[in-house]
């Protein structure tokens, strides 16, 4: 396990980048009707490779994920159906990774988002920004990939495609 102090960015940087992204995308709050089978919370992950391998994980309760999905899908979406929420979270992870990248020294490459069920991870080895959003919070965690949670079978619970 690598200590959080060896991560190439500070919690403050992560909070700033996240706050700016969420501020600019302009999430609107409403009572979203969630389809049956929507998980209680949604997660997405994106890898950032460079001087080391990092994982950025983003996690939010379904209502918050629905608000994020509404930004991307508008009324064209399927009203919070199973594919919109994880797809929107994946794109949010991608954009947030882009926002923290300029704060990292050296050359880094952002991977393609995927979704997974996160396992608890020690706060000693990760930094986590908790940003209040509507009726919940979004948490964004950055950790070394070796310490980041592995994909479990739970990932298949959420259907739909996320590329």
């Amino acid at each position: 396990m690598m200590p959080a102090s060896e991560l190439p960015l500070s919690l403050e940087d992560l909070e700033l980048a996240t706050a700016e992204v969420l501020g600019v995308i302009g999430v609107k709050f409403d009572e979203y009707e969630l389809r049956e089978g929507t998980p209680e919370r949604l997660t997405a992950r994106v890898a950032i490779h460079g001087a080391s391998d990092l994982d950025l994980t983003i996690e939010a309760p379904a209502q918050v994920a629905a608000a994020v999905a509404a930004v991307f899908f508008g009324t064209d979406g399927d009203g919070g159906a199973t594919t919109d929420l994880p797809d929107a979270m994946g794109e949010l992870a991608n954009i947030t990774a882009g926002a923290i990248k300029p704060m990292l020294d050296g050359h880094w490459v952002i991977g393609i988002p995927d979704r997974f069920e996160p396992q608890p991870i020690s706060s000693d080895s990760a930094i986590r920004a908790i940003v209040p959003l509507g009726r919940g919070v979004v948490s964004i965690t950055v950790a070394h990939s070796a310490d980041a949670p592995v994909i479990t079978e739970a990932a298949s619970v959420v259907e739909g495609t996320m590329s």
């Binding site: 991307f72 899908f73 064209d76 994946g90 590329s163």
Partner: peptide, 12 residues
Amino acid sequence: DDSRAARMLIGR
């Protein structure tokens, strides 16, 4: 865009 979310937002 590979992200359906991004295609929808940009397309709209």
